[in-house]
Design a protein around this nucleic acid. Structure first.
Lengths: 143, 143
DNA sequence: TAATAATTGAAAATCGTTTTCAATTATTAT
DNA sequence: ATAATAATTGAAAACGATTTTCAATTATTA
């Protein structure tokens, strides 16, 4: 179990959650991937080591991790959910560059939308509270 | 039936689609809204004038309109789909400013992501083929 | 070690969406 | 106009992802 996984486990314990083998394994799968993973993907990976796990447990654990801020939930264009361990300093503003071919994800954080948002607020009267940017492309390996 | 609706109807006919009252009414509902609408929203609005319509017909018509490029399909953060009549010159690059409160949508097209995309390509080796930006906020009426 | 409260997995339920299929309707060639 | 046709329709069933229910199990605590 990696340092990253261990730290999250400790924090979860502090927050009153019980530490179960299922939760550890789910975190490990997330930690060992630089691709976004669907609940089913995670389920299948965990089953290799822990065949008794139920898909429900994966959903429930992802919900906890998402609410606690340890993972990012992506909504893919198809509408399906995919998850990603957060690897940037806590709460830092960032976006994702996603490979359409293999799902590999790279973070970037210099989005510089503030100016555009100001313009748009002036023009439309909308107060802008958040934004999402998703860049879609192909990673070097998939080109 | 508005001009906008009429023009789309004509184009659809040219493309070999039959013109049915259901399709006209669905287009009218889209045309008369500046908010994004779910299939169920559209279904309910059309039913006021045409109670026999089936939800399937709404789905099928939306699929046709989307493929033909007359409407935008949004994937909301929840993963659900919502639709919007395109109101900008054919094919023009644009994004949406969405009111989180009422769903009102305003277009903007000066996103200027080209520079950022170049930086990121240089850094990561990803080839970027498309991007989506969604600005979330509150419209003047909802503030 | 015993008491407890949280967590688990199986099964059923739910929700949006898609498929199937027979009946209907818009278009066309006459 | 009318008949022939191929597309479109709506009901019902099927579907896939996600959520809920519930009794049994397990991690934690005292």
């Amino acid at each position: 179990m990696s340092t990253s996984t261990n730290q999250i486990i400790k924090s979860l314990k502090k927050s009153g959650y019980k530490i179960t083998p299922q939760r550890k394994l789910i975190l490990d799968v997330l930690n060992n991937s630089d691709h976004h993973l669907s609940p089913a993907n995670i389920y299948n990976k965990v089953r290799e080591k822990y065949p008794e796990i139920g898909l429900v447990t994966v959903y429930r654990t992802l919900e906890i991790l998402d609410k606690a801020g340890y993972i990012c939930r992506l909504t893919l264009p198809s509408g399906l959910a995919a998850y990603l361990l957060k690897r940037c300093p806590s709460g830092q503003h960032h976006h994702h560059l996603v490979c359409q071919c293999c799902g590999k994800v790279v973070n970037f954080n210099n989005c510089n939308l503030a100016e555009l948002e100001k313009e748009i607020t002036d023009e439309t009267g909308f107060v802008i509270s958040s934004h999402t940017i998703e860049l879609n492309g192909k990673c070097p390996a998939c080109q």
